[in-house]
Amino acid sequence: MSMAIELKPESAKAFARFLYARVPGAAQLRFAIKDLVARYVSKPEFGGVSRLGNGGGLIIDVGANRGQSIAAFRRLRPDCDVVAFEPEPRSAARLISRYQGDRRVTIHDCALGQRAGQLTFFIPRYGRWDCDGMAATSQDEATQWLRDRGRMFRFDETRLTVTEHAVQCRTLDSFRLSPMLIKLHAQGAELDILKGSQETLRRCAPPLMCAFPGRELVDFLRQFDYDPYLGDGGDFAQGLARPGATFTWFYSRTHLEHPS
């Protein structure tokens, strides 16, 4: 009688990450495939972009990383311009090179925050795997995901290293943009970024896509009459995103009463 070993989804992911860290080229192949797939497939939460009306407009992408969200916005709303912010140096350089011929996409290689200045970015690497998507302004924030129990098969602390990069930080308000949507995925810095975006929120009241919002962020946005909505394929219900989803949408009552 033969016996088959069944890996649970999270166990399979943990083992895949083990391979990224140890097998030459495995992580690069994984990201090359993800970059290709991102041109055609996006998370269900992006379906809400179809509710934003017609006639173009500006989408702000905070925390562009490898450009997955840019690809989704360009596919779902080709009539819109995208202004993206990515402070991690290698990721920003890739995006600038990739989109230099697209007049509808602008890349800024700076951080956003509550005030202008200079920040230190911590970028983890685990074995052969460059974890630039986990870069954060706190070393603990940058490495906690890797250290969490079950994330990595046979986690080995000696394989984890962290490099530091100084990056310029600006407020979103200083750019004087008029967005129809702001997407934020910034490794826990979303609240600080929104605190530097208060004039933009009051002036434009754009819908927001926020990754993994905490209670403090939800409470902060209530002063601007924003409420959280879970979105799946364009359908919305009030509340935070379901487990397994990345983004919660936030709509202001002004926007709901007077849609574009």
Results as ranks from 00 to 15, higher is better:
Leu95Cys: 09
Arg98Thr: 05
Ala116Glu: 14
Asp109Gly: 09
Ser69Ala: 15
Ala93Glu: 15
Ser91Lys: 06
Gly101Ala: 14
Ala92Gln: 07
Val83Met: 07
Glu88Phe: 01
Arg104Leu: 11
Arg104Glu: 05
Glu86Ala: 05
Glu88Ala: 07
Asp79Met: 09
Ile70Pro: 01
Val83Gln: 00
Ile107Pro: 06
Asp102Tyr: 01
Phe85Asn: 03
Gln114Ala: 15
Gln100Ala: 14
Val105Ile: 15
Ser69Gly: 07
Arg94Val: 04
Pro78Ile: 01
Gln100Met: 13
Pro87Trp: 07
Ile70Asn: 04
Tyr99Gln: 07
Tyr99Lys: 04
Asp109Ile: 03
Ala93Met: 11
Thr106Arg: 14
Gly67Val: 04
Ile70Val: 10
Ser91Glu: 13
Val82Ala: 05
Phe85Lys: 03
Arg104Ala: 13
Glu88His: 07
Arg74Asp: 10
Arg90Ile: 11
Cys110Arg: 12
Leu76Gln: 10
Arg94Met: 08
Gln100Asp: 14
Arg75Cys: 06
Ala93Cys: 09
Arg98Asp: 05
Cys110Gly: 03
Leu95Thr: 06
Ile70Leu: 01
Phe85Ile: 06
Ile96Gln: 13
Ala116His: 11
Arg66His: 12
Ala111Asp: 11
Pro78Ala: 00
Arg66Pro: 00
Pro78Phe: 00
Gly67Tyr: 02
Glu88Ile: 02
Ala72Trp: 00
His108Val: 11
Val82Trp: 00
Leu95Ala: 09
Ala72Asn: 08
Ala84Tyr: 04
Val105Ala: 07
Cys110Asp: 06
Ile96Phe: 00
Ala116Phe: 00
Arg66Asn: 06
Cys110Ser: 10
Arg77Asp: 14
Ala92Ser: 12
Pro87Leu: 08
Ala72Leu: 06
Glu88Val: 04
Ile96Glu: 11
Leu95Gln: 07
Val105Ser: 02
Arg98Val: 00
Ala72Gln: 07
Arg103Phe: 06
Asp102Thr: 03
Arg104Asn: 13
Asp109Cys: 01
Ala93Phe: 01
Leu112Cys: 11
Leu112Phe: 00
Asp79Gly: 03
Arg103Ile: 12
Ser69Val: 05
Asp79Arg: 01
Tyr99Met: 09
Glu88Gln: 13
Leu76Arg: 10
Arg66Tyr: 03
Arg66Lys: 12
Gln114Gly: 13
Pro78Trp: 08
Tyr99Ser: 03
Arg74Lys: 14
Ala93Tyr: 02
Ser97Asn: 15
Val82His: 01
Val82Lys: 04
Gly101Asp: 15
Cys110His: 10
Val105Met: 02
Ser69His: 05
Ile107Met: 09
Phe73Thr: 05
Leu76Cys: 02
Ser91Pro: 03
Arg104Ile: 00
Arg77Cys: 12
Glu86His: 10
Phe73Pro: 01
Phe85Arg: 00
Ile107Leu: 08
Ala84Asp: 08
Val83Pro: 05
Gln68Ala: 11
Ser97Met: 06
Leu76Met: 15
Cys110Phe: 02
Ala92Asn: 03
Leu95Phe: 04
Glu88Tyr: 03
Arg94Phe: 02
Val105Asn: 09
Gln114Tyr: 06
Ile96Arg: 06
Ala92Leu: 02
Pro87Arg: 04
Ala93Thr: 08
Phe85Pro: 05
Arg115Cys: 12
Arg75Thr: 09
Leu112Ile: 11
Ser69Leu: 08
Gly113Leu: 10
Phe73Cys: 09
Gly101Ile: 10
Ala111Met: 11
Tyr99Ile: 01
His108Glu: 13
Asp102Leu: 00
Ile107Glu: 03
Asp109Ala: 15
Ala71Trp: 02
Ser91Cys: 15
